[in-house]
């Protein structure tokens, strides 16, 4: 299990750093120019806001010993695998085309979220096949999208 309190603290620190980055970039764009306000005017305020409020949140979590609960590692693994599969689809579609890649991706997503049973996979294959056909008909044939 992952304790969300520590994740919150880490994200708060990251956001403080990110806010400072936005401010420094904003300073480079220029806070003001001859017309009055420069391209960096808004980023400086917004970046400053993110950094300041994230610092306040960090202190709040530390001082109040806030408990945000936990999340199962299996859930995080599922999210990482799903994202990786979608990025894998991008790579694969350049080699075998989008139609074949989407079928592989859907089977992978089904395997990630479904139970490990023969019956499930027997149903998954036709569902993914029919969905792929529908996607082709809707996007390529009906909407005329230029698929890879």
């Amino acid at each position: 299990m992952i304790i969300l309190r520590y994740v919150d603290l880490a994200v708060s620190l990251l956001l403080v750093a990110f806010g400072i980055y936005i401010v420094t970039q904003g300073l480079a764009f220029g806070y003001s120019d001859r017309s009055g306000v420069g391209a960096g005017f808004f980023p400086i305020w917004i970046g400053g806001g993110i950094a300041a409020l994230s610092a306040v949140n960090f202190l709040k979590v530390v001082r109040n010993n806030l408990h945000l609960g936990t999340i199962e590692i299996s859930e995080v693994v599922r999210v990482v695998f799903t994202s990786a599969a979608m990025l894998g689809f991008i790579y694969l579609s350049h080699h075998v085309g989008m139609i074949a890649s989407i079928l592989v991706l859907m089977l992978a997503i089904g395997a990630i979220y479904g139970p490990r049973s023969k019956v499930f996979y027997l149903w998954l294959l036709p569902i993914c096949g029919v969905t792929t056909l529908f996607l082709y008909l809707i996007f390529r044939v009906l909407l005329g999208a230029l698929l890879i």
Binding site: T82, M86, F89, M98, I102, L105, M106, L107, I109, G110, A111, Y113, G114, P115, F120, W123, L124, I127, C128, T131, T132, L135, I138, F139, A145
Partner: peptide, 16 residues
């Protein structure tokens, strides 16, 4: 409907 059947359909629609 199991998420194992639903999510592949949703992700297919999202990506296209």
């Amino acid at each position: 409907l199991r998420p194992g059947y639903l999510y592949p359909i949703v992700i297919g629609v999202v990506i296209f």
